[in-house]
Lab assay of single mutants.
Amino acid sequence: KLETFPLDVLVNTAAEDLPRGVDPSRKENHLSDEDFKAVFGMTRSAFANLPLWKQQNLKKEKGLF
């Protein structure tokens, strides 16, 4: 399991300012399950079932792209 970080560490943070080991294209993977659901309004599995373009739009909207 990946290390999780608080939302404010990941949202609207440039790649070079992210904690070590965080993939800038997969910031959402480093949210706790609770934060993930609070941000996206759905579970990880529901998010994973969305088309890629919709996932990317949601990530942009939430500052996690």
Rank of each mutant, 00 (worst) to 15 (best):
residue 1 K to Q: 14
residue 1 K to Y: 12
residue 1 K to E: 11
residue 1 K to T: 12
residue 1 K to C: 15
residue 1 K to F: 12
residue 2 L to K: 11
residue 2 L to E: 08
residue 2 L to N: 10
residue 2 L to W: 15
residue 2 L to I: 14
residue 3 E to N: 10
residue 3 E to A: 12
residue 3 E to D: 11
residue 3 E to M: 11
residue 3 E to R: 07
residue 3 E to I: 13
residue 3 E to P: 14
residue 4 T to N: 07
residue 4 T to W: 12
residue 4 T to C: 09
residue 4 T to P: 07
residue 4 T to H: 10
residue 4 T to A: 08
residue 4 T to L: 11
residue 5 F to H: 07
residue 5 F to M: 05
residue 5 F to L: 07
residue 5 F to I: 07
residue 5 F to N: 03
residue 5 F to Q: 04
residue 6 P to N: 05
residue 6 P to Y: 02
residue 6 P to H: 04
residue 7 L to F: 10
residue 7 L to R: 05
residue 7 L to G: 02
residue 7 L to M: 10
residue 7 L to V: 09
residue 7 L to N: 03
residue 7 L to T: 04
residue 7 L to K: 05
residue 8 D to L: 10
residue 8 D to M: 11
residue 8 D to K: 09
residue 8 D to G: 09
residue 8 D to V: 10
residue 8 D to A: 14
residue 8 D to N: 13
residue 8 D to I: 09
residue 9 V to Y: 15
residue 9 V to L: 14
residue 9 V to T: 08
residue 9 V to K: 09
residue 9 V to S: 08
residue 10 L to I: 05
residue 10 L to A: 02
residue 10 L to E: 03
residue 10 L to M: 04
residue 10 L to C: 04
residue 10 L to Q: 02
residue 10 L to N: 02
residue 10 L to S: 02
residue 10 L to V: 02
residue 11 V to D: 03
residue 11 V to T: 09
residue 11 V to L: 13
residue 12 N to D: 09
residue 12 N to G: 10
residue 12 N to P: 04
residue 12 N to C: 14
residue 13 T to E: 06
residue 13 T to R: 10
residue 13 T to Q: 08
residue 13 T to I: 11
residue 13 T to F: 08
residue 13 T to S: 13
residue 14 A to S: 13
residue 14 A to N: 13
residue 14 A to Q: 10
residue 14 A to P: 13
residue 14 A to E: 09
residue 14 A to V: 09
residue 15 A to R: 11
residue 15 A to T: 14
residue 15 A to G: 09
residue 15 A to W: 12
residue 16 E to R: 10
residue 16 E to F: 02
residue 16 E to D: 11
residue 16 E to L: 07
residue 16 E to G: 11
residue 16 E to H: 12
residue 16 E to T: 09
residue 16 E to V: 11
residue 17 D to W: 07
residue 17 D to V: 07
residue 17 D to K: 09
residue 17 D to M: 10
residue 17 D to C: 15
residue 17 D to H: 10
residue 17 D to I: 06
residue 17 D to G: 08
residue 17 D to R: 08
residue 17 D to Q: 10
residue 18 L to V: 06
residue 18 L to K: 02
residue 18 L to M: 06
residue 18 L to D: 04
residue 18 L to R: 02
residue 19 P to R: 03
residue 19 P to Q: 03
residue 19 P to L: 04
residue 19 P to M: 03
residue 19 P to T: 02
residue 20 R to T: 15
residue 20 R to H: 15
residue 20 R to P: 15
residue 20 R to L: 15
residue 20 R to M: 15
residue 20 R to Y: 12
residue 20 R to S: 15
residue 21 G to R: 05
residue 21 G to P: 05
residue 21 G to I: 07
residue 21 G to Y: 07
residue 21 G to L: 06
residue 21 G to E: 09
residue 21 G to K: 05
residue 21 G to C: 10
residue 21 G to T: 09
residue 21 G to S: 09
residue 22 V to H: 03
residue 22 V to L: 05
residue 22 V to N: 03
residue 22 V to S: 03
residue 22 V to K: 02
residue 22 V to E: 03
residue 22 V to I: 10
residue 22 V to G: 02
residue 22 V to Y: 03
residue 23 D to P: 03
residue 23 D to S: 05
residue 23 D to G: 02
residue 23 D to K: 04
residue 23 D to T: 05
residue 23 D to E: 06
residue 23 D to C: 10
residue 24 P to D: 06
residue 24 P to E: 06
residue 24 P to W: 03
residue 24 P to Y: 03
residue 24 P to N: 05
residue 24 P to H: 07
residue 25 S to T: 15
residue 25 S to Q: 14
residue 25 S to I: 10
residue 25 S to P: 02
residue 25 S to E: 14
residue 25 S to W: 11
residue 25 S to D: 14
residue 25 S to F: 15
residue 25 S to V: 09
residue 25 S to L: 15
residue 25 S to Y: 14
residue 26 R to Y: 11
residue 26 R to L: 08
residue 26 R to V: 06
residue 26 R to W: 08
residue 26 R to E: 06
residue 26 R to H: 15
residue 26 R to F: 12
residue 27 K to Q: 05
residue 27 K to D: 03
residue 27 K to L: 15
residue 27 K to I: 15
residue 27 K to H: 03
residue 27 K to R: 15
residue 27 K to M: 15
residue 27 K to W: 05
residue 28 E to N: 02
residue 28 E to G: 01
residue 28 E to V: 04
residue 28 E to I: 05
residue 28 E to A: 02
residue 29 N to R: 12
residue 29 N to H: 12
residue 29 N to M: 15
residue 29 N to G: 08
residue 29 N to K: 11
residue 29 N to T: 07
residue 30 H to G: 03
residue 30 H to S: 08
residue 30 H to N: 07
residue 30 H to P: 01
residue 30 H to C: 06
residue 30 H to M: 04
residue 31 L to P: 01
residue 31 L to I: 08
residue 31 L to Q: 01
residue 31 L to W: 02
residue 31 L to E: 01
residue 31 L to T: 01
residue 31 L to V: 02
residue 31 L to K: 00
residue 31 L to N: 01
residue 31 L to F: 02
residue 31 L to A: 01
residue 32 S to I: 04
residue 32 S to C: 06
residue 32 S to N: 10
residue 32 S to D: 07
residue 32 S to Y: 02
residue 32 S to F: 02
residue 32 S to P: 01
residue 32 S to K: 06
residue 33 D to T: 06
residue 33 D to V: 06
residue 33 D to E: 13
residue 33 D to Y: 05
residue 33 D to W: 04
residue 33 D to H: 06
residue 33 D to N: 08
residue 33 D to F: 04
residue 33 D to C: 06
residue 33 D to R: 03
residue 34 E to R: 08
residue 34 E to Y: 10
residue 34 E to A: 13
residue 34 E to M: 10
residue 34 E to G: 08
residue 34 E to L: 09
residue 34 E to F: 10
residue 34 E to S: 11
residue 35 D to L: 05
residue 35 D to N: 05
residue 36 F to T: 00
residue 36 F to G: 00
residue 36 F to Y: 01
residue 36 F to Q: 00
residue 36 F to L: 01
residue 36 F to C: 00
residue 37 K to G: 10
residue 37 K to Y: 15
residue 37 K to A: 13
residue 37 K to T: 13
residue 38 A to S: 12
residue 38 A to K: 12
residue 38 A to I: 12
residue 38 A to R: 13
residue 39 V to C: 12
residue 39 V to I: 09
residue 39 V to L: 12
residue 39 V to G: 00
residue 39 V to Q: 03
residue 40 F to R: 00
residue 40 F to H: 00
residue 41 G to I: 02
residue 41 G to C: 10
residue 41 G to P: 00
residue 41 G to S: 08
residue 41 G to R: 08
residue 42 M to N: 00
residue 42 M to I: 08
residue 42 M to W: 01
residue 42 M to S: 01
residue 42 M to G: 00
residue 42 M to C: 07
residue 42 M to Y: 05
residue 42 M to T: 03
residue 43 T to V: 08
residue 43 T to S: 13
residue 43 T to L: 09
residue 43 T to W: 04
residue 43 T to R: 05
residue 43 T to F: 06
residue 44 R to D: 00
residue 44 R to F: 05
residue 44 R to M: 05
residue 44 R to W: 04
residue 44 R to K: 12
residue 44 R to Y: 05
residue 44 R to I: 03
residue 44 R to H: 05
residue 45 S to H: 14
residue 45 S to F: 14
residue 45 S to G: 11
residue 45 S to V: 13
residue 46 A to G: 07
residue 46 A to C: 11
residue 46 A to Y: 09
residue 46 A to P: 00
residue 46 A to Q: 13
residue 46 A to M: 13
residue 46 A to L: 09
residue 46 A to H: 10
residue 47 F to K: 00
residue 47 F to R: 00
residue 47 F to I: 00
residue 47 F to D: 00
residue 47 F to M: 01
residue 47 F to A: 00
residue 47 F to S: 00
residue 47 F to Q: 00
residue 48 A to F: 12
residue 48 A to G: 11
residue 48 A to T: 10
residue 48 A to L: 10
residue 48 A to R: 12
residue 48 A to W: 10
residue 48 A to H: 13
residue 49 N to A: 14
residue 49 N to R: 13
residue 49 N to C: 15
residue 49 N to G: 12
residue 49 N to L: 14
residue 50 L to Q: 05
residue 50 L to D: 00
residue 50 L to C: 03
residue 50 L to R: 00
residue 50 L to Y: 04
residue 50 L to V: 02
residue 50 L to P: 00
residue 50 L to N: 00
residue 50 L to H: 01
residue 51 P to R: 02
residue 51 P to F: 01
residue 51 P to A: 07
residue 51 P to K: 03
residue 51 P to S: 07
residue 52 L to G: 09
residue 52 L to D: 11
residue 52 L to Q: 10
residue 52 L to R: 10
residue 52 L to E: 12
residue 52 L to H: 10
residue 53 W to G: 08
residue 53 W to V: 09
residue 53 W to M: 08
residue 53 W to D: 11
residue 53 W to F: 09
residue 53 W to P: 07
residue 53 W to L: 10
residue 53 W to C: 13
residue 54 K to M: 14
residue 54 K to Q: 14
residue 54 K to H: 12
residue 54 K to R: 12
residue 54 K to S: 10
residue 54 K to C: 14
residue 54 K to I: 13
residue 54 K to G: 06
residue 54 K to A: 12
residue 54 K to W: 11
residue 55 Q to P: 00
residue 55 Q to T: 01
residue 55 Q to W: 00
residue 55 Q to Y: 01
residue 55 Q to I: 03
residue 55 Q to C: 01
residue 56 Q to F: 11
residue 56 Q to K: 11
residue 56 Q to V: 14
residue 56 Q to M: 14
residue 57 N to C: 15
residue 57 N to H: 13
residue 57 N to P: 00
residue 57 N to A: 14
residue 57 N to Y: 13
residue 58 L to V: 05
residue 58 L to R: 02
residue 58 L to F: 06
residue 58 L to I: 09
residue 58 L to Y: 05
residue 59 K to P: 00
residue 59 K to R: 09
residue 59 K to N: 01
residue 59 K to M: 05
residue 59 K to E: 01
residue 59 K to T: 03
residue 60 K to R: 12
residue 60 K to T: 09
residue 60 K to H: 08
residue 61 E to L: 11
residue 61 E to F: 07
residue 61 E to N: 08
residue 62 K to F: 08
residue 62 K to S: 07
residue 62 K to N: 12
residue 62 K to E: 03
residue 62 K to M: 08
residue 62 K to R: 09
residue 62 K to W: 06
residue 63 G to L: 06
residue 63 G to S: 04
residue 63 G to Y: 05
residue 63 G to N: 07
residue 64 L to R: 02
residue 64 L to Y: 06
residue 64 L to F: 09
residue 64 L to N: 02
residue 65 F to E: 14
residue 65 F to S: 15
residue 65 F to A: 15
residue 65 F to P: 04
residue 65 F to G: 15
residue 65 F to C: 15
residue 65 F to T: 13
residue 65 F to V: 10
residue 65 F to M: 14
residue 65 F to K: 07
